[in-house]
Design a protein around this nucleic acid. Structure first.
Lengths: 145, 145
DNA sequence: ATTCTAAATGCAAACTATACGCATTTGCAT
DNA sequence: ATGCAAATGCGTATAGTTTGCATTTAGAAT
């Protein structure tokens, strides 16, 4: 995948192979990925890149605002995804980890109200929703008995 | 602080000193605490307990549903708080880390809608809101220039 | 009250995700 | 083409958390 030649230059970053590869992976995924996810996806494509470098590139992308970082409460690992204008949230099955990306954000109005009430300058939020997916929920109910 | 004598027995757990101390701390706090927070609070009161034990007790409390665990995106540490019927969320200043507990949960209705739409059996969610508190926001704006 | 046993704890060490120091390589301006 | 700052690889350090094992403790049985 080839992005505009000066994409990185505009942000004051060198246009390196590693950064291009990472961005490719992040552009193709619908769900947030951990550093290791990305590392392994690249390895599958026979793209060798050091895990340290993956972390460093991700940190840089976050600093430049290209990527947003969050922490999954389930796995306790950091997750990364492209920072889109219209951010989204995820519904995660606590059994099989299947993840659904939800359309829209239920907190838009709430944040405005909160801003007025608290005088905080609200810059963002993190929301994760948990549950059992249709495939797992029948089995999960059985186990509780 | 003395809770009902058979509080732990009812849940099939031994009534140990450590568990009582941990529960005391969790009952007194308004904000979620990390394992180390709890360990240090106890140390201040000259209550010596091993950090491993703190972790083990917290894991047990979570398994028994007494306590809920979450992961702060800011600090990358696990946080624990009593699992109350009426859960709450927190507004955290990304500069000074001052934390406000918010009344009510803005997701009640949303979760019902989601349940119908996705067929997931929704069991919970995690929400953190970030921003600059009144004290930090003036300074934060200055820095961006 | 004393004894006994499974469960809880302390301690040290392992483990996992992530960060870092330093030598080497690469991108890019000259 | 050349040189230099920035990026990367590699090994190692660190922080948070977990685990194995010996010792202690809670509470049941006597």
């Amino acid at each position: 995948m080839q992005r505009s030649e000066n994409f990185f230059a505009h942000l004051g970053m060198k246009n390196t192979q590693g950064r291009n590869h990472l961005l490719d992976v992040l552009e193709k995924t619908e769900i947030p990925l951990t550093a290791e996810d990305i590392y392994l996806k690249l390895k599958e494509k026979s793209i060798e890149i050091n895990l340290s470098t993956v972390y460093r590139i991700l940190d840089l992308f976050v600093a430049k605002g290209i990527v947003s970082k969050s922490t999954s409460s389930i796995s306790n690992k950091s997750q990364f995804e492209l920072a889109k204008k219209e951010h989204s949230h995820h519904l995660v099955c606590i059994q099989c980890k299947k993840t659904l990306t939800l359309a829209g954000c239920p907190l838009k109005c709430y944040e405005k109200k909160l801003k007025n009430k608290t005088q905080y300058d609200i810059t963002g939020h993190k929301l994760e929703i948990f549950g059992y997916c249709p495939d797992c929920k029948f089995f999960a109910n059985k186990q509780e008995e």
